[in-house]
Amino acid sequence: MSDIKKRKSIGILGGTFDPPHWGHLRLAEHFSRILQLDHIIWMPAGQPWQKGSDITPAKDRLAMSEYAIETLHDLFVDHHIYTKIEISTLEMAREGPSYSIDTAKEIRALYGPDASITWLMGQDSWFNLKTWHQWPELPKYVHLAVASRPTEDPSSFAVNAEGVKEGLFADKRTENPQLLQLNPYGHVLFDQNLQINLASSNLRDGFYNQTSWDELADAIPPLVLEYIEAKGLYRNT
């Protein structure tokens, strides 16, 4: 029997969550399974500096996140996933613009140098990564796990004349989730097994355009949708 103790494995799922949708939940479920996460930290952004001032108030996004977590917990129970889930208000409590690099540093300090910490993201976040504040510093604190689609594979890299891969974090790319489990930080995993194409901005537009309840219910967890309706969010006034 091996004497090697399993490294604690943490996933960070950050975002505006305006509103949370099934894509967020499925991404959390997927990476919880393949990375064998002990813990997922659902991290609503406070003042996302790239989003402008027209986002839904933090108290509503936090409430929607709490309802989303309730649904995610039930999903985990049904699928026999034992990952602990919690909402962190770390970014919401931070004054001024909210930067992911600051969050990565704080989570690393909280869990220590040995825990495997992975920032979970969809393909849209990956494509925008170069606009993030101090983005090259992220692998010094966390891994990145990207849910990408085969139709538009962001893990593809150009190869230079010497046969060396070029591109964003080309030297850190892996398709082996075990490398993320065995190391505390520094790897970028691309996974093409999650086929979800949802965006919060499109869902907000759906409310503005009076998209049918059935269509919205396919994209948004029911408790979240009930909260949106009760509060009258995303409706033109």
Rank of each mutant, 00 (worst) to 15 (best):
11 G>V: 10
15 G>V: 15
63 A>W: 10
139 P>S: 12
4 I>F: 11
34 I>G: 07
225 L>D: 02
154 P>Y: 12
52 G>E: 00
198 L>M: 14
193 N>H: 07
84 K>V: 10
235 R>Q: 10
91 E>Q: 10
202 N>H: 15
164 V>R: 14
186 G>I: 10
88 S>I: 04
132 W>I: 14
103 T>Q: 03
203 L>K: 11
97 P>M: 02
3 D>P: 03
45 A>K: 12
10 I>D: 06
162 E>I: 10
33 R>N: 06
7 R>Q: 01
39 H>Q: 15
18 D>M: 07
109 A>G: 04
159 V>E: 09
31 F>V: 02
140 K>H: 14
43 M>Q: 10
55 I>Y: 09
204 R>K: 15
170 A>F: 13
26 R>P: 03
92 M>L: 14
206 G>V: 01
11 G>R: 04
123 Q>C: 09
170 A>V: 09
68 A>K: 06
27 L>D: 05
234 Y>R: 02
90 L>V: 09
176 N>T: 14
163 G>C: 05
192 Q>R: 11
232 G>W: 01
229 E>S: 08
89 T>A: 02
161 A>I: 08
65 S>G: 13
149 R>I: 00
179 L>H: 12
177 P>E: 01
199 A>M: 14
203 L>V: 15
230 A>C: 07
134 Q>C: 00
215 E>S: 09
55 I>F: 07
4 I>N: 12
180 L>R: 01
211 T>S: 13
227 Y>H: 13
147 A>L: 11
22 W>C: 06
125 S>W: 13
216 L>V: 07
63 A>P: 05
44 P>F: 11
144 L>E: 10
35 L>M: 04
232 G>Y: 00
105 K>E: 00
7 R>P: 01
118 T>L: 06
22 W>F: 14
181 Q>A: 00
71 T>A: 02
220 I>S: 05
146 V>H: 05
118 T>N: 04
66 E>S: 10
132 W>K: 07
56 T>H: 12
43 M>A: 14
19 P>I: 09
17 F>R: 12
116 S>N: 05
129 L>D: 08
171 D>E: 13
11 G>F: 03
132 W>P: 15
120 L>P: 06
112 G>C: 06
92 M>D: 07
57 P>V: 00
23 G>Y: 15
105 K>M: 00
147 A>M: 11
130 K>L: 03
207 F>T: 14
139 P>E: 05
98 S>I: 04
74 D>R: 14
133 H>E: 03
178 Q>G: 07
198 L>V: 15
9 S>R: 15
218 D>R: 12
86 E>A: 07
24 H>T: 05
146 V>L: 03
193 N>D: 02
137 E>S: 00
69 I>W: 12
192 Q>L: 08
219 A>C: 12
178 Q>S: 06
61 R>K: 13
103 T>K: 08
55 I>S: 11
45 A>L: 14
148 S>G: 09
163 G>S: 03
149 R>F: 08
12 I>D: 02
69 I>N: 02
98 S>Y: 02
187 H>L: 01
132 W>Y: 05
197 N>V: 15
71 T>R: 03
85 I>S: 14
100 S>K: 06
73 H>M: 11
138 L>V: 04
127 F>Y: 13
98 S>G: 04
